[in-house]
Amino acid sequence: MSTEVYLPPNPVEALLRTDRMPHIWCPGCGIGTTMNCFARALQQARLDLDKVVIVSGIGCSGRVAGYANLDSFHTTHGRAIPFATGLKLANPELTVVVYSGDGDLIAIGGNHFIHAARRNVDLKVICVNNFIYGMTGGQVGPTTPATALTSTTPYGCPEQPFNLPYLAESAGAVYVARWTAYHVRQITHSMVEMFRKRGFCFLEILSPCPTLYQRRNRLGDGLEAMKYYKEASVTRHGAPTKEVAISFQGPILVGKFVDIERPTYLELLNQQLARTLEAQYTGCIEDHVRS
């Protein structure tokens, strides 16, 4: 009797604003895939979703905040990290996730990215890297592989892209991992690890942009990108981040590269103030906000 078969709901539904479905992402785009991992990771980490806040910038990946049934902030282009910094420092009991794209986080927001990593603000930064500006129509970005075609490099990209794990580690991130949208279980696992870690955590997820990056470079559809990720990825946990740069359709080193301990900004601030002000110091902003 089929009516007696109980089927638990899709774990992602609890995270979705279902009244906003279907979403705007193209067929074969990997952003939704990463949201599945995010939903399952939240569930596995047993976080109280009322205390999880998601902050995005602008762009295709910036729309994640709008679809996530959490307290969610779709901020200005490139400024998700400083907004999240204010949010986290003013209420440290929140788990603050920054979910955005490569152009948003690393080009227009690059300065904020390195400084938040340097300060070790306790943020979980998830960067969906599709090698291109999707929302605006496929322009060259800070992660576009050299020689790739984009609408603003119609003769091939002459620039060297950022190696994001190397950048994140150099700037001070305590956790750095890279996966592709193909590595759904590994993404989920890394997200759980990030939720359990304090400090500036960075996860790069390579993700297909079939409409702009794939098509212009004659690389097939989203599925073709996923097959490339599957075939070209080599897992090397602990690989020196200097060696994980990406080339056009070249091999992709994936894995968890950095997992270190370092006091967070707030811990250092509290320590410093307690040491200097002694009895005069009665605690950080948290108590004030809660009162």
Binding site: Y6, I31, G32, T33, N36, C37
Partner: peptide, 24 residues
Amino acid sequence: DLCGLYCPDFAIYGVMLKDSTTPP
């Protein structure tokens, strides 16, 4: 549930039946 993890459109997911006949 690998289909559920991959589906970018939240249109499919998998469940194990041994866990499913008795609702939690």
